Simulated assay, not measured.
Amino acid sequence: MNAQVRLVEVTDANRDAVVAVRVRSGQERFVASVERSFLDAREHPEAEPWYRAAYDGDEPVGFVMLSWNLTPGPGLLGPYFLWRLLIGAPHQGRGYGTAILDQVVDLLRADGATELLTSCVPGDGSPQPFYLRYGFVPTGETDEDGEVVLRLDLGC
Rank of each mutant, 00 (worst) to 15 (best):
V31H: 09
N2A: 11
L39K: 12
S126E: 00
I87S: 06
G135N: 04
E144H: 12
T71A: 12
R133Q: 10
L150H: 04
R36M: 14
R42I: 07
P129V: 06
R6V: 15
D56S: 15
G146Y: 05
W83V: 10
P74G: 12
F136G: 01
S119Y: 03
D106K: 13
S25R: 15
G93F: 00
T139V: 01
L66R: 04
D56Y: 05
L76I: 14
F81V: 03
E59L: 15
D153V: 06
Y51W: 14
E43V: 10
D143L: 02
V23G: 03
L154V: 01
E46R: 12
A17C: 13
D106E: 10
R109L: 06
L116D: 02
P60T: 07
R109V: 05
E46N: 10
D106Q: 11
S33C: 08
L85N: 02
E43F: 10
D12Y: 09
C120L: 11
E59P: 14
V31T: 07
G93N: 10
D145K: 14
Q128W: 08
A13G: 08
P122K: 12
R151Q: 13
G62K: 08
L85K: 00
A13Y: 10
E48Q: 12
R36S: 14
P138V: 04
E48M: 13
P90Q: 07
Q128A: 11
V21C: 07
V19A: 05
A89P: 03
G97L: 04
P74S: 15
I100L: 00
Q27T: 11
W83F: 13
Q27M: 08
E28D: 09
F63P: 04
D143G: 01
L85R: 02
F81I: 00
E59I: 15
D16K: 15
R94V: 09
L66E: 04
W50L: 13
P74D: 14
H91Q: 10
D143C: 06
G97H: 02
L101S: 11
L66F: 03
P72L: 14
D58K: 12
E48A: 12
L70G: 04
Q92L: 05
G123S: 08
D102S: 05
G95I: 01
G112Q: 07
D12L: 14
E147I: 03
D106R: 13
W50D: 10
V137P: 00
V104P: 01
L85A: 00
T142P: 02
G26W: 00
T98N: 09
F136V: 08
G146Q: 07
D40I: 13
L154Y: 04
Y51M: 12
A17N: 09
A54H: 06
G57C: 15
R109A: 08
P45S: 04
P79K: 08
M1A: 15
A3E: 07
E35R: 14
P60M: 09
G140Y: 04
S37M: 06
I87D: 02
L70P: 03
L82S: 01
V19T: 07
L7F: 01
R36Y: 10
N14F: 04
A17K: 07
I100N: 05
A54R: 06
R24P: 11
L70K: 08
A13F: 10
G95Y: 03
L77G: 10
R52F: 02
G135L: 00
Q103A: 10
F130R: 03
D40A: 15
V61F: 11
E9R: 15
E59S: 14
Y131M: 09
D12E: 14
F38C: 06
D124K: 11
W50T: 06
